[in-house]
């Protein structure tokens, strides 16, 4: 059975989800194209996992509508489950089964054709040929994550939903992982991936930033940065801690962040920020420089904005 052809892998409008009287996801509207890697960012508890679970049929939205791979997210969850690969945030394969047994079980659940071969290929691709009979529970975090990804790709899904797949994984493994994701996207698979890492966000084709159940920004990394209208300065030199304290007290300064020997200062009002910089640049050993704001600056700004503007 093939999914109906449609340009968007995910196309949902106004999805809402409550847990009791907690409004966890508010009016989620999201489009993800085939072949696109879509980054899903936001602080812990912002509703990312709930959103992903609604997209793969694990949770029923309270209202709203839309499709995943052309299947209705409310009525056709069975079809969605068959075509989507979902990787849970927490390792959710069976720790008392071996690597091979886990893959074999998952392959059976999805009715993978030529199962033995598919499992063998997956193990070879993982480079785990010699450890195939090791219990999954004995694997390190990085290996568990790779095994999970292999498991959710066994049935060759057209859409991957990955919930913080690289949390707690070392940089080399993360890079390998992302190379693999890009390879898949190149084959036309859509990937929705939630993450806290800014470098990963920058590797996505497009991004969405969620806070308290609401999407605050969507677009490419550059678009998200541009839409925030932030102005930023960097300063190098000694005594940055004292400078940071002074800057925080100035009007127009929204963020002061120290990165080793560099201080980043950001604000939305260019004139006010400039004035703050002028007033603080008495020490000649400190060198000021106008910079482009980063994604992280933008996200923190979005979050502070939303938190301030929130009716209490």
């Amino acid at each position: 059975m093939n999914a109906p052809e449609s340009a968007a892998a995910i196309d949902v409008h106004g999805l809402n989800k409550h847990f009791g009287d907690k409004h966890v996801v508010r009016d989620l509207t999201l489009q993800v194209r085939r072949g696109e890697i879509y980054g899903f960012l936001g602080p812990n508890g912002s509703g990312k996992t709930t959103s992903i679970r609604m997209l793969c049929g694990l949770l029923t939205p309270d209202n709203g509508s839309g499709t995943c791979l052309g299947f209705d997210v409310i009525r056709e969850t069975y079809e969605i489950k068959r075509e989507v690969g979902y990787m849970t945030q927490r390792f959710s394969l069976w720790e008392d089964l071996t690597i091979r047994e886990n893959l074999d079980f998952v392959a059976r659940m999805y009715g993978v054709a030529a199962r033995a071969r598919a499992v063998r290929d997956a193990i070879d691709a993982l480079g785990l040929g010699d450890r195939r009979d090791q219990l999954a529970g004995q694997l390190s975090g990085g290996w568990k994550q790779r095994l999970s990804l292999a498991a959710c790709m066994l049935h060759r899904p057209q859409l991957l939903l990955l919930d913080e797949p690289t949390a707690g994984v070392d940089p080399k493994a993360r890079r390998d992982f992302w190379d693999q994701i890009h390879g898949l996207a190149g084959q036309g698979i859509a990937v929705l991936v939630s993450t806290h890492y800014m470098d990963e966000a920058e590797r996505c084709h497009r991004l969405a930033y969620m806070f308290e159940g609401r999407l605050l920004a969507t677009g490419t990394a550059a678009e998200v940065v541009a839409s925030a209208c932030l102005v930023a300065w960097a300063v190098n030199g000694p005594d940055l801690a004292a400078l940071a304290a002074a800057l925080r007290a100035r009007p127009g300064v929204l963020q002061v962040t120290q990165f080793g020997g560099t201080l980043h200062v950001a604000g939305r009002d260019a004139a006010l920020l400039e004035a703050a910089v002028q007033a603080s640049s008495a020490d000649p050993r400190q060198r000021w420089q106008r910079i482009e704001p980063g994604l992280e600056d933008v996200f923190i700004d979005l979050m502070q904005n939303a938190a301030n503007g929130r009716p209490s």
Binding site: L58, K81, T88, R90, S92, V106, M109
Partner: peptide, 13 residues
């Protein structure tokens, strides 16, 4: 309790 139910549920079983 082990969290594997989410995985089982996400399959078409």
């Amino acid at each position: 309790e082990r969290g594997t139910f989410e995985n089982l549920l996400s399959t078409p079983a």
